[in-house]
Design a protein around this nucleic acid. Structure first.
Lengths: 133, 133
DNA sequence: GTCCCTGCAAATCCTTTGCACTCCT
DNA sequence: AGGAGTGCAAAGGATTTGCAGGGAC
């Protein structure tokens, strides 16, 4: 069991994440933190983001389109992911306890109710003409 | 618009995928195809898998734990992903049209009903003692 | 013959890791 | 002082891509 020590970099990373309503990538966070600590390294950002995830203070959103995203909003909520452009959006959708209950029953473990992702095509991509190649 | 030409490698890849009930990675498919075509390259496997996805003949399952998976089963079904070990399982769960309908209403695009993923902890990982480090 | 498809290897993207040094406690 | 945290750069895993040759039509 490790003892946690204070680090201003970690505090800054957490503060950055809590101040944003989007779902920044590690690199987004890195670029943001650099304004305050120009010497911070990307490796440190990754290390601390993963540490914060382990501590349960932020969540990692892993899709498959591009890099992972991070979110300090721990209130259970659904996410929408565009299969085409990778845009991610919170879904202002009320929880579906029946769905979770049924899923719990038939699945092989315990489902996190806030870890349900919907994939589809966002408006931008939907209404854009398909490329004529 | 490209004209598609026959390729035995592509046929073999598709047949491999249709013959499996698991959710193989590109590398799994590669290893499998190599038994029939020892000279096939991993790049070719990736190229054809992506092509089949574009054609809508198979689907790519992208999580964030390890490599992407491929699935020739196009019948809409829910998936469960273990956040810890990355295991993927089909959920024998009946469709929830209300959920999709409500999600459609509040989201910024069109949701694929078969593209809903539940994340959690599978039995194996849940009941295993956490590492004592 | 044309042009798609292949095998190969190098390149790319994202993320992790080893190391020497620094800072917290 | 001890050991967790850092910056840097190199390594790592997954996937894509450039190229020259091979095969489908």
């Amino acid at each position: 069991m490790k003892t946690l020590k204070y680090s201003r970099q970690r505090e800054s990373i957490k503060a950055c994440l809590m101040g944003r309503r989007d779902h920044p990538t590690a690199d987004d966070v890195y670029l943001s933190i650099r304004q305050e600590y120009p010497n911070i390294s990307l490796g440190t950002v990754y290390r601390n983001l993963n540490l914060l995830v382990e501590l349960g203070e932020v969540q990692k959103l892993s899709f498959g389109y591009g890099p992972d995203r991070f979110d300090a909003d721990l209130i259970p909520h659904y996410h929408f992911v565009c299969k085409n452009c990778g845009t991610i959006a919170d879904l202002p959708l009320k929880p579906f306890p029946e769905l979770n209950r049924e899923a719990q029953q038939c699945c092989e473990g315990r489902i996190d109710s806030h870890s349900t992702y919907f994939y589809g095509m966002c408006r931008n991509c939907m209404f854009r003409e398909p490329p004529q190649d």
